[in-house]
């Protein structure tokens, strides 16, 4: 393929001069949370494996999740799951032609950010108190 000089992508330093519409702000965490979840599956399988291995394994996993590191990992994974879940449904709605106008996309992005912020807050409360 012949090389041409059209800009295909931008350098990191260009990010500062970009405008950041709310759609972009809502889109980036979707990608970041997806990447974190891809590597987080390892933690989830580890937790599932240990919790199902035996009564003792279940109790060990429970106490691991109650340590500060365990609580933090649990909260991060739940937060990523929450954000990816909400933003994913926004995508599915857009596939069906919903919120494709500029204004519609802005509302959908704000709704995504708002709903996932609530869910992330609830996840923090759940992790801290170990249930509602």
């Amino acid at each position: 393929m012949k090389q041409d000089s059209r800009p295909i992508n931008v350098s990191v330093t260009d990010l500062a001069v970009f405008k950041w519409p709310i759609m972009a702000i809502a889109s980036i965490p979707h990608r970041v949370s997806g990447a974190l979840l891809f590597f987080g599956v390892g933690f989830m399988l580890f937790a599932l494996d240990m919790s199902l291995s035996s009564e003792a394994g279940f109790e060990t996993m429970k106490s691991l999740m109650a340590t500060p590191v365990g609580m933090f990992v649990t909260w991060v994974l739940l937060s990523c799951l929450a954000y990816h879940f909400v933003a994913g449904f926004k995508h599915l709605a857009m596939d069906m032609g919903i919120a494709e106008t500029l204004e519609g996309a802005q509302i959908a992005s704000a709704t995504t950010l708002f709903l996932s912020a609530i869910l992330i807050g609830l996840a923090a409360l759940w992790v801290i108190w170990g249930g509602f």
């Binding site: 599932l48 919790s51 199902l52 035996s54 009564e55 279940f58 109790e59 249930g131 509602f132």
Partner: peptide, 16 residues
Amino acid sequence: VLMNPELDYETWSGYF
């Protein structure tokens, strides 16, 4: 998980 706040091994492994 939310419906079983006092989750134990029996219930958890039975579920899966």
